[in-house]
Simulated assay, not measured.
Amino acid sequence: MTAILQISDTHIVHEGALVSGRLDTADALGRLVERISGIRDKIGAIDALLVTGDLSDGGTAASYDRFKSIIAPLGLPTYVIAGNHDAREPMRAAFAQDLPASGHLDWSRRVGDIHLIGLDTLVEGQGAGALSSDSLSFLQAALAQAGGAPVLLALHHPPFASGIRFMDKIGLTNREAFREIIADYKGTLRIVCGHVHCMMVTDVAGHIALSAPSPCSTFAYDRRSDAPVGFYTQEDGCLLHRWNGGFESIRIGPVAGPGPFPF
């Protein structure tokens, strides 16, 4: 059995700062780390931590150092991908051991039974994302290398429309090119992403795709054309992906609540 914990959209800033003048994102992430640490004996062994973008809110070296210090109590091998709020070179420097020395931050790793692939959708200076021709070629080669093994494929921008209009305006601009490549993969492939600050489950080219919640805020699922643009201060949890002959994806909420009570 292999288990990978996914945390997304932590938006860490330097000490003393609040995101949008309101969100203490470091405090929220710290509470989630405490929550996970407190239930490790219940959920079983975790092989790695996957962070699907927007680790930082401004891409500063200090924010990446702060992020690393907050997650340190988990003691997990950590694999990161870039989100639209990240900055490629400071992120590369902060995670130099596990990211390529140059070019886009695409990578693949074998973690237990899972072939884990991370793709860089960052277009610096823009909210929308795209997979470069190099990243698409990397994906094609990484899937060939996986050779039918179970794949957990991670990117920041969802390869699907969320229905949240202001987020879809800054979504993945070349979803079809991504779909064409993964449609040919014959093994089990699960796609995970972030960006939309809520959990959604859908199908992309015959494969299950999930977006992860954010520890620090939530976007409302509001399909109206005049839906307000903004966030809610509701904090959410993370996802745990387990391979045991098939994928299981479990949401872990930020708080336990009272109980358990007898039936």
Results as ranks from 00 to 15, higher is better:
192 V>H: 01
197 H>G: 02
252 I>D: 04
103 G>R: 00
16 G>I: 11
102 S>Q: 08
218 T>H: 13
145 Q>Y: 08
61 A>F: 05
66 R>A: 08
193 C>L: 03
177 A>W: 12
230 G>M: 06
217 S>G: 02
159 P>F: 00
62 A>V: 05
238 C>H: 00
85 H>Q: 11
126 Q>L: 11
7 I>A: 03
11 H>K: 00
252 I>V: 06
225 S>M: 14
178 F>W: 01
40 R>Q: 10
5 L>A: 03
219 F>E: 10
219 F>C: 12
15 E>P: 00
49 L>H: 01
144 A>N: 15
67 F>K: 03
208 I>F: 10
175 R>P: 05
221 Y>F: 15
99 L>E: 06
153 L>C: 13
12 I>K: 04
71 I>L: 13
121 T>K: 09
66 R>H: 10
14 H>Q: 12
37 S>Y: 09
102 S>E: 14
88 R>N: 07
243 W>I: 05
195 H>R: 05
129 G>D: 06
233 T>V: 14
47 D>G: 06
249 S>I: 00
134 D>P: 00
201 V>N: 15
98 D>K: 15
143 L>W: 09
132 S>V: 13
158 P>K: 05
122 L>Y: 06
249 S>L: 04
187 G>Y: 08
227 A>H: 02
56 S>V: 03
137 S>R: 13
237 G>C: 09
245 G>D: 05
234 Q>F: 10
34 E>M: 12
143 L>H: 14
184 D>K: 15
251 R>W: 11
70 I>L: 12
194 G>H: 06
133 S>P: 08
140 Q>I: 00
202 T>R: 13
8 S>Q: 04
251 R>Y: 14
221 Y>D: 14
242 R>L: 06
192 V>E: 04
161 A>H: 11
194 G>M: 07
41 D>L: 12
3 A>M: 01
204 V>N: 01
103 G>A: 05
198 C>Y: 13
144 A>K: 15
243 W>Y: 14
241 H>F: 09
228 P>A: 06
76 L>E: 09
12 I>H: 06
83 G>Q: 03
180 E>N: 15
131 L>R: 03
222 D>S: 02
49 L>Q: 00
29 L>K: 03
65 D>R: 08
15 E>V: 11
191 I>C: 05
18 L>V: 03
14 H>G: 12
201 V>S: 15
207 H>G: 07
59 G>K: 06
175 R>W: 00
133 S>F: 13
159 P>R: 07
115 H>Q: 09
196 V>H: 04
203 D>Q: 15
197 H>W: 02
52 T>L: 04
217 S>C: 13
152 L>A: 11
169 K>F: 12
133 S>C: 08
100 P>Q: 01
166 F>H: 08
110 R>F: 11
116 L>E: 09
181 I>Q: 09
125 G>V: 00
173 T>K: 07
70 I>F: 10
240 L>T: 01
150 P>K: 00
94 A>K: 00
24 D>G: 07
132 S>F: 04
223 R>L: 12
58 G>H: 14
80 V>M: 02
170 I>L: 10
246 G>K: 14
156 H>E: 01
229 V>H: 07
176 E>Y: 11
212 A>R: 03
21 G>Q: 04
66 R>V: 07
124 E>N: 09
224 R>P: 00
89 E>S: 10
126 Q>E: 14
84 N>C: 07
89 E>L: 12
216 C>I: 06
